[in-house]
């Protein structure tokens, strides 16, 4: 675009006219009138939502369902996937019962619980004889079948600068845990020998 001069009450012109745009782009301006835009009025009464109740029936609560303290009541319908359990579940239930959604500690506790949950489940996966397999579960083998090198290099992409961190994120905690365990075993063996 060329510079059009001093700042005036006119805005820089658009190079294509409405007619040119309509000709070039299928459907140009079909929703120009806000009346054709479904959410132009953001709050708009919806008569026919399909709901045939004033308030829905209550879903059966099969265990004490964790809920935000910002809710006055347990909503009538809720998800039942992965009930909280073990230490991670205790952290989550404590956080839900204690903090409003405005408190950073609430969310940081959830993040902590997520990591504890991962450790708990990885350990259980060994007991169940289906240990986690970082090779298959990360899908990293698709690097060989979906042009991993060609997709990344010789391109003007920003992400190769930090993608090397991904394996560190996946393997780092395991390497650190192995290091701590090895160190502990060595110290134990040393203590027994002396």
């Amino acid at each position: 675009m060329t510079v059009t001069g001093p700042y005036t009450a006119q805005r820089p012109p658009i190079t294509e006219s409405a007619e040119q745009l309509r000709e070039r782009i299928p459907g140009w301006g079909a929703d120009l009138d806000p009346i054709n835009r479904p959410s132009a009025t953001r709050l708009q009464w919806q008569e026919n939502t399909g709901a045939h109740w004033e308030f829905p029936e209550q879903q059966v609560e099969r265990w004490p369902r964790e809920r935000s303290v910002e809710h006055r009541m347990l909503p009538p319908v809720f998800g039942t996937a992965q009930p909280p359990r073990w230490l991670s579940g205790a952290i989550r239930k404590y956080s839900y019962a204690t903090y409003s959604e405005g408190r950073a500690v609430r969310w940081l506790l959830f993040t902590l619980a997520d990591r504890v949950d991962a450790v708990e489940n990885h350990l259980v996966s060994f007991l169940r004889l289906r240990p986690d397999n970082p090779i298959t579960e990360t899908g990293v083998l698709s690097e060989f079948t979906h042009h991993g090198l060609r997709s990344r290099f010789g391109q003007r992409r920003a992400d190769p600068k930090h993608q090397w961190l991904d394996p560190v994120i996946v393997a780092g905690p395991w390497v650190a845990a192995a290091g701590v365990a090895t160190s502990g075993v060595r110290k134990l063996v040393g203590a027994v020998r002396h």
Binding site: S39, R42, L43, Q44, W45, Q46, T49, G50, A51, W53, E54, F55, P56, R65, E66, R67, S68, H71, L74, P75, P76, V77, F78, G79, Y96
Partner: peptide, 21 residues
């Protein structure tokens, strides 16, 4: 849910009756 204050005003992404968490 289609029936709470938010759903009746078209804010289907903000339903008050479906997210306990």
């Amino acid at each position: 849910c289609g029936s709470c204050w938010f759903c009746r005003r078209g804010l289907f992404g903000n339903c008050n009756n479906t997210n306990a968490n």
